[in-house]
């Protein structure tokens, strides 16, 4: 869980960096260059498979974990006050993850399927940048993306430091750094991601 989680985060960081290229606001030129590189480079294509494997593995682990954990407490408490001892998002990783999964399916349908399995983009008829502008002109999509990014933020707020704990990468000297990095990542990544559809919807990106 920890390894796949951190791996997914590392992917998100690259992904976020590339997508942020749209903020250069050069009509998508740099962004498209990046996208093209990603689409053509064999190493990246290979990594894509690993990434899907990782995501799948993450989801499978999550499912097993949730099932086993349910089984460990067959009878629920009548009165329970969990907020006294833990954060709601730490206890809701499955829910947050499921929201992410739904989002991912829609997200992939929008971009990945278009960019990899149709010839729209490879044929040069369309750029990913334009595709983006089109998709993000729909309000519901923008709202969905924002919601998903809130989930991502909370998923990572717990997930980042949790992964370090799971892997035993823990030391009094570095705990504070891990904690802070986690908070920064869980704010910066989702905010940047959410800024894209918002900016496009509002017509800030030309």
């Amino acid at each position: 869980m920890g390894i796949t989680g951190l791996f997914l985060i590392s992917f998100l960081m690259v992904h976020c960096f590339l997508n942020s290229l749209i903020f250069i606001n050069d009509g998508g030129e740099t962004f498209n260059l990046g996208a093209e590189f990603m689409a053509k480079n064999w190493l990246i294509r290979a990594m894509e498979i690993v990434l899907f494997g990782g995501l799948l593995w993450h989801i499978i682990q999550a499912a097993i974990l949730t099932r086993e954990n349910k089984k460990a407490r067959p009878v629920a408490y009548a009165a329970s006050n969990p907020s006294a001892n833990s954060k709601w998002y730490s206890r809701s990783m499955g829910l947050l993850g499921t929201i992410l999964l739904i989002f991912l399916i829609i997200h992939l349908r929008h971009f990945w399927v278009v960019s990899r399995f149709t010839d729209e983009i490879t044929s040069g008829r369309e750029t990913l940048f334009n595709e983006m502008k089109e998709v993000f002109s729909q309000l519901w999509v923008v709202i969905l993306y924002c919601l998903a990014m809130v989930s991502l933020g909370y998923h990572l707020l717990h997930g980042f430091k949790s992964a370090f704990q799971t892997l035993g990468w823990n030391h009094v000297k570095y705990n504070a750094i891990i904690e802070k990095t986690g908070v920064i990542i869980s704010i910066v990544l989702p905010v940047l991601f959410a800024a894209m559809p918002i900016a496009i919807y509002m017509g800030l990106i030309k």
């Binding site: 974990l65 086993e68 954990n69 001892n85 833990s86 954060k87 730490s90 949790s162």
Partner: peptide, 12 residues
Amino acid sequence: FGNCTNTGACEA
């Protein structure tokens, strides 16, 4: 026993 998901409830 269930698996640890690092909620920290135990320590608290």
